[in-house]
């Protein structure tokens, strides 16, 4: 601000346009691209696994869950970032929880009103977005110290990173467990009607093993080794 006052705007010296960063500069694009692969919240940071697995036996509820989580992360990041200078450090955890819980209540009410079937399928797991460590983690690690737009992008990146992993898990579980994708019978459509289903994929065991294998593939590609 003080700089602006010291440099009065003249015709040769236009307003401080060049100092503002473009909305999607290189630095900001990294907020979105990093969590997708190199710093994925599920496969590398080991966060948010609780809800990641429970809903993944079919693609449809998984998709709704992914959208809900992206919504909650983006908006809680935005709100926290706007309030970051007003939140006293000592009660920041409970403030963050209150912000997240409010957004989750919104999501839950909307789902109950317009997508009742899906909301029944997701049952308590919508509520469990509150305790999803990714959301808390982003608020604590990023939104408390960064500007609103950066925080929105960061939330979007983490949300997308989370979404593709749970969608991948759900893809394999539904395809191998029930032989369908989004309820569409794939095997019959391509003339392999007698394809047996693997019952284990529908139970929780399938989720653990599929996620374990996805983590293996992903970490082998990025070369990340945990010691």
């Amino acid at each position: 601000m003080s700089e602006k006052e010291n440099n009065p705007v003249t015709e040769q010296n236009p307003p401080l346009k060049k100092e503002s960063e473009p909305l999607l500069s290189k630095r900001r694009k990294k907020f979105i691209s990093d969590p997708l692969v190199d710093d994925n919240p599920i496969t590398l940071q080991v966060l948010g696994i609780c809800s990641a697995l429970a809903v993944t036996s079919q693609l449809e509820p998984t998709f709704v869950m992914a959208v809900a989580v992206i919504f909650v992360i983006v908006f809680s990041n935005l709100i926290t970032s706007l309030l970051r200078n007003m939140i006293p450090t000592r009660i920041r955890i409970i403030t963050q929880l209150a912000i997240i819980a409010t957004l989750v209540i919104l999501v839950d009410q909307v789902l109950r009103a317009y997508f009742f079937d899906v909301s029944k399928l997701l049952s308590v797991f919508v509520g469990l977005i509150i305790t999803n460590c990714i959301v808390m983690g982003r608020l604590e690690a990023f939104a408390m110290g960064n500007k609103p737009w950066d925080s929105v992008l960061d939330g979007l990146g983490s949300g997308l990173g989370y979404s593709w992993v749970i969608l991948a898990v759900a893809f394999f579980r539904e395809l191998l467990g029930s032989g369908s994708l989004f309820g569409f019978k794939v095997w019959e459509a391509i003339g392999l009607g007698g394809m047996p289903n693997n019952g284990l994929m529908v139970t929780s065991v399938g989720a653990f093993i599929v996620l374990g294998l996805i983590i293996w593939v992903q970490r082998s590609r990025t070369g990340y080794v945990e010691h």
Binding site: T43, V46, L200, T203, S204, V205, G206, A207, F208, I209, L211, G212, L213, I215, W216, V217, Q218, R219, S220, Y224, V225, E226, H227
Partner: peptide, 23 residues
Amino acid sequence: VPDGMKGLGITMVITGLMGMALL
């Protein structure tokens, strides 16, 4: 354990196997 599987990956698979036992 294979490098990419170390840590989280193998832990998930172990959990799956334990879950299978309890099934």
